[in-house]
Design a protein around this nucleic acid. Structure first.
Ligand code: FES
Ligand code: FES
Lengths: 146, 146
DNA sequence: GTATAAAAAGACAAAAAAGTCTTTAAATAA
DNA sequence: TTATTTAAAGACTTTTTTGTCTTTTTATAC
């Protein structure tokens, strides 16, 4: 399971993408409101994204968060790696100190398949993909009216 | 990802099963040593299992932990549910307050499939299955020599 | 230049998870 | 009966995660 921080990051970045497509740069107050996440915690997570170059920001009046239109599509796994690291994709399913193909735990074979599928999903899914689904009405970003 | 408590529980119960097959009832000191888990924390987790009837224990000299030979095979999901609840299998993949088929988040379709596979795995895998693999040498329970 | 609006930064606080310590209760062996 | 061994119980501590508050920096509008 993702950390709350990773979840908030994904939702926030999707929201920023959607607003950016209308040429607006939302601030963290608006973002946190729209994704139903705590305001200052959201701000801190976005700071981390900016420090790690996943995202850009401008300060001052009219400022906010935005993506460099030149940059390549951002995948979920890049975000997860930035916020909480890769342990979700490398840990042993029953907590052995490392996961190993040669000295596997008794559930390794089955667990590793599922873990790898999840890694593939987060590797192949971009923030733009998710934004598309919100815009097309195939998905939602909050539970305000549902 | 499972909590440490769930991971220790699974490893401990597999170890108890293995020893029970040789008609011995290990204590928590031995168990925690063999599964490389903290001693008192392991004891507390086993207490929870006993309180919830997943496991039995006898106190005093020659005491220890054991399974009722009459009881039906114990699945991983029962253990997980006892220790940390079912949220792993019910939560939204990007943290919406609930997961819903009718108002899905933008990754619901793909995520729910993987989450359900994991639930199937833990539903169909029993502690006995894992113990079998240890005994046959197909798997290990610790990282002492590997 | 001054006021205003926004992100950045960092200290702080609360909650949850993980882990430890000490005492009590129960069973057995002598 | 007494000593010993073991699990149970509960208070406590530490670490990690989550969340808040206050101040500083930066950009813009007037
Ligand atoms: S060794 Fe346990 S999942 Fe790979
Ligand atoms: S609504 Fe997000 S995973 Fe189901």
């Amino acid at each position: 399971m993702l950390s709350k921080a990773s979840e908030y990051a994904i939702r926030a970045l999707v929201y920023i993408t959607i607003k950016n497509r209308d040429a607006v740069r939302p601030g963290y107050r608006e973002i946190s409101r729209e994704i139903e996440a705590p305001e200052q915690f959201t701000a801190k997570i976005l700071q981390t994204c900016v420090r790690n170059k996943l995202l850009q920001s401008v300060r001052g009046r009219g400022g906010g968060f935005f993506f460099d239109p030149e940059s390549k599509p951002l995948t979920l796994i890049e975000i997860i790696n930035t916020i909480e690291g890769m342990s979700l994709f490398t840990r042993c399913g029953i907590g052995l100190s490392k996961c190993s193909d040669t000295a596997p735990c008794p559930i390794h074979k089955e667990y590793a398949v599922i873990r790898d599928q999840y890694q593939q999903l987060t590797t192949n899914t971009t923030i733009d993909n998710l934004a598309d689904k919100i815009i097309s009405g195939e998905g939602v970003l909050n539970r305000m009216f549902n």
